[in-house]
Amino acid sequence: MKEILRSYKQTPASSIAARCIPITAKGVVRGRLRPITGDTLQNPAEIKLIAEWREASADWFTTRFPLSEAGTSRWLEQVWRADDRILFFVEDEECTPVGQVGILHYDPLKKQCEFDNLLRGRKGKFGNIMIYALITLGIWTIEELDVMEGFIRVVADNYRAIRMYESLGAEEIERTSLIRLEENGVTRWVPGQPGSSPPPERELATMRIKREVFLKLHQSNLPT
């Protein structure tokens, strides 16, 4: 199954349209998921875009560091080379990138994955495109990767994101206390224990989406 991820990520630019996944809302195509491939690593404009999106949403990541286009390029290469993860651009009806979604820790034996790097970079023509992008990605993981359970980790004070994930069928199953560590300009939120120094300041919520629940909620978006 991991070969499927590899085949999407290694698609040449000349064939990329065939690997894009239509984003539909109530039967109408509103955009597409375009896999980030080796060609993206050679595209300074797209690397700059991803760096800007990450910087704008830095408060919602458990690691915050000074971003640069060079650093973003190195990170994208790691994503591209990893055999258990993939990242997609979310594009609107005009094929303009407006955000990104991805998965990591894909385990074909446990039939699990984690949804990751869910970012809206700019407003698209269709206001709810990110919600439908996540639904599209969820359907794709079920149909292409046979995923039975998906997980999302989100800082617990990101209330808007949590409400959106709940609307998709996710339920919270665990909370982890986080303490803040600062070193060489990098801020990390790492697991901490009661009574630890410094004391916990935030929490990380782990949410789970079960296949049967997701399919029941989103039957109207399933391909016919």
Rank of each mutant, 00 (worst) to 15 (best):
152 I>D: 04
173 I>R: 03
176 T>M: 11
104 L>I: 02
151 F>H: 11
186 V>P: 06
118 L>D: 00
137 L>D: 07
169 G>D: 06
147 V>M: 06
92 D>R: 03
144 E>A: 02
174 E>H: 03
182 E>G: 08
142 I>K: 02
135 I>P: 03
14 S>E: 03
200 P>V: 10
143 E>F: 09
205 A>G: 01
180 R>V: 14
125 K>F: 01
133 A>H: 05
221 N>Y: 04
199 P>V: 05
207 M>E: 03
89 F>C: 05
101 V>G: 08
127 G>K: 13
173 I>C: 07
198 P>C: 02
75 W>Y: 13
122 R>C: 01
175 R>T: 14
129 I>H: 06
124 G>V: 05
16 I>S: 10
95 C>G: 08
51 A>R: 04
16 I>D: 03
64 R>A: 07
146 D>M: 12
133 A>W: 14
172 E>R: 10
18 A>F: 06
120 R>S: 14
95 C>E: 13
100 Q>M: 15
210 K>P: 13
1 M>C: 00
73 S>M: 12
185 G>D: 12
133 A>S: 14
209 I>N: 01
58 A>W: 03
219 Q>R: 13
6 R>C: 09
202 R>Q: 12
216 K>P: 00
71 G>L: 11
70 A>H: 07
141 T>W: 06
168 L>Q: 13
108 P>T: 01
140 W>R: 02
72 T>Q: 15
186 V>C: 04
82 A>C: 08
184 N>T: 00
79 V>R: 10
30 R>V: 00
26 K>H: 15
64 R>H: 05
4 I>W: 01
121 G>L: 14
85 R>W: 05
87 L>V: 02
50 I>P: 10
86 I>M: 00
62 T>V: 10
190 V>Y: 08
39 D>T: 12
136 T>C: 12
12 P>T: 07
36 I>H: 08
74 R>N: 13
105 H>K: 08
221 N>R: 10
212 E>T: 11
128 N>L: 15
86 I>D: 04
223 P>C: 00
220 S>H: 12
179 I>N: 05
98 V>L: 10
